[in-house]
Write a protein that binds this DNA or RNA. Structure first.
Lengths: 222, 222
DNA sequence: AGCCGCTCTATTGCATCCAATACAACCCGA
DNA sequence: TCGGGTTGTATTGGATGCAATAGAGCGGCT
């Protein structure tokens, strides 16, 4: 552990962050499911590191709500109850429109066209691709303005519910919900007209409807 | 370091959390100011621990936004710019009314009376006491409902701006703002009538006005 | 004088080791 | 057969020591 430089130079001091980042990705892709145990040594071996940076990574993910730590016992991928999910969606209903408002004035036509294409493209996809495109669609609306805090808050809420959104889609796919796509196009339209109030309204309604849809499938939360 | 049990039994596995908790308190009381360096060994010595749990504590506080870490360099008590503070207040404007809505139905007369007394009591106080009473007034409105997430989010926003609220009060005390107290009493009144919409409106306006007041003193943020 | 590069030191990052804890399996007596 | 205590093992928590980095101070060159 001394002459591994040259290629991975300047990566010192980032082990914890790197591990956190990869574990976060693994949780989002579903490699780890809610409730799964996360053993420190596993992660350490997998990343060729010791348990020290692993524990740092776990603390970070705990703060993001993705992992739940119990002293002297271990770490688990966080479960989310229906009540908590409902709460997160209600928070999103309030702050995502605000974040959107910050961003709409900064969007150029190229971005709006891309949003439109995404909205159309995801109309006819399977679960995994829909999840990815929908996420890209919404988050693309949020990363223009320098509102680090709001953006981070929203991203954390998305991440914490990601697994459950996937689970919902798998279950509810029998009767696909077309109005989601309708709302996406309404949103793009409002953005294109730079109608901030209308964009806020459509987005809030979109999130609200999704929340109500989710609540109709409590089995997603075991 | 083995037979120190008996009195502090069962505190194993909580060193990081304890250190974080005390450092958080120190930042809130002003013992550490924004921009201050935080050396790991200092904290370790101060708490009779090694640097390992200290680093855990720093990661936790970083996630809360109270501390800023730079790899291979160190940790500082986070500074907040006027723009960021503005952003936090705008988030609060949106979600605190929601949190209040959750809680009002659970409040009993005793609590409402206490809020009224707090509102009156803080009308005639010096900076430190006002800060404390105001915080208690508002946070008391939030801890009845089991909305862990929303509560935690709001608490973090309060904590991140706490130092600046104090700094503002010290500077702006020359022309004390009476409408703050008026709004507090309006809020109590709406709560007592269980008028959820009005309570939301008053609270949003209260936060909004505070934001605008803060923006009139950019010097608070250096 | 001003600038570049070096050295030296304070501090952080991480690996290793040992202690403490939790949990499961087991034993034992009633 | 069941309950309570006990031992054993897997796993986490934390202390120590060493490597890596950043930044200040210094010296030499132009």
């Amino acid at each position: 552990m001394s002459i591994n430089n040259v290629s991975e130079l300047a990566t010192h001091g980032a082990a914890g962050a790197r591990i956190a980042s990869e574990l976060r990705e693994a949780i989002l892709t579903g490699d780890y499911a809610p409730g799964d145990r996360v053993r420190q040594e596993d992660l350490a071996d997998r990343h060729g590191a010791s348990r020290v940076p692993v524990r740092e990574a776990l603390r970070m993910l705990e703060a993001e709500g993705l992992v739940t730590l119990v002293a002297n016992t271990g770490a688990w991928v966080s479960r989310v109850s229906l009540a908590e999910c409902d709460e997160m969606y209600r928070i999103r209903e309030r702050i995502e429109p605000l974040l959107l408002r910050y961003n709409v004035p900064l969007m150029d036509d190229a971005l709006i066209d891309r949003l439109d294409r995404l909205a159309t493209e995801m109309e006819d996809t399977e679960v995994e691709e829909f999840i990815a495109l929908d996420r890209e669609f919404h988050l693309s609306c949020y990363d223009l303005a320098p509102t680090r805090l709001l953006e981070e808050t929203v991203l954390r809420l998305w991440n914490r519910t990601h697994s459950y959104r996937r689970a919902y889609m798998r279950i509810a796919r029998t009767d696909p919900d077309r109005s989601v796509h309708h709302e996406h196009h309404l949103l793009v339209s409002a953005i294109r007209r730079r109608d901030l109030d209308e964009a806020e309204r459509v987005l809030a309604g979109h999130i609200r409807r999704t929340r109500l849809e989710l609540a109709r499938h409590p089995d997603v939360f075991e």
